[in-house]
Design a protein around this nucleic acid. Sequence first.
DNA 1: TCTTGACTTAGACAAAGTCCAGGGTACGAT
DNA 2: ATCGTACCCTGGACTTTGTCTAAGTCAAGA
Lengths: 136, 136
Amino acid sequence: MSDLLERLRERGWRLTAQRRVVAEVLDGDHVHLTADEVHARAIERLPEISRATVYNTLGEMVTIGEVIEVATDGRAKRYDPNAHRPHQHLVCFRCGTVRDVHPHGDPLAALPPAERFGFTVSAAEVTYRGLCPDCS
Amino acid sequence: MSDLLERLRERGWRLTAQRRVVAEVLDGDHVHLTADEVHARAIERLPEISRATVYNTLGEMVTIGEVIEVATDGRAKRYDPNAHRPHQHLVCFRCGTVRDVHPHGDPLAALPPAERFGFTVSAAEVTYRGLCPDCS
DNA sequence: TCTTGACTTAGACAAAGTCCAGGGTACGAT
DNA sequence: ATCGTACCCTGGACTTTGTCTAAGTCAAGA
């Protein structure tokens, strides 16, 4: 988190109260908030922060690779601060809860050359779906 | 396609010009249109068809499992008529082109029980990303 | 052919996200 | 410590994507 802010600064970015709050709100494990959820929590600490700033700041964090954008449901994008090590996501059908998971093996390896159609394939995102314990 | 319309009829659904046109527009391999793209093409054949009807019809087709909803980019959902056999998607970073691909092995198998957090996991969607030949 | 309930339409509405002009401020320079 | 300026933030308008509703229309069985 202050780690994140430090990296922002190294990029010559100005450290503002707004950016600090967004980074703090997003900190933690298994955090997958939407932009509006981030905004709502940020307002508790900094009442005058605007939606546009939250969107801008999240976008900047995604650009430098400190935060990952996750589209689990075709609705609002979610923001995942766990960009340190590669992982995938497990989503509940009913309540939408998201967990980070670590499958073994490289998902890219399962795609044979003949199925790549000349693409230079460089990433694979896996979304596992099921019912969480609370929703069973 | 007429196959699809036949199934709709078996479910007691009325066969209308609008539904026929939506099914025709969506027919084919590697077709991944957004709802608005479907609407634009449907209008060429049936100028008075409304957006609401296109959304309704696509939703119905998804409900009966004849069409799959794909969220490749966090923007508009895309509709994939290839619901016959399981497959995954390969998306170009730059132009957004989508291809159906068939990785080998079951992606579910890569998720160990210890990584399931008590979920009843029943599906895995994989999105491969890379640059298509035209965009390289 | 008639009837009827399901389908379609246009447009209002909602949710998620982007853009802009103008005021505010972090930070290097002095 | 203060200043100047380039960059940041704000509020609100706007866009895109999708949903909902009331009223009119029509497919299909009787």
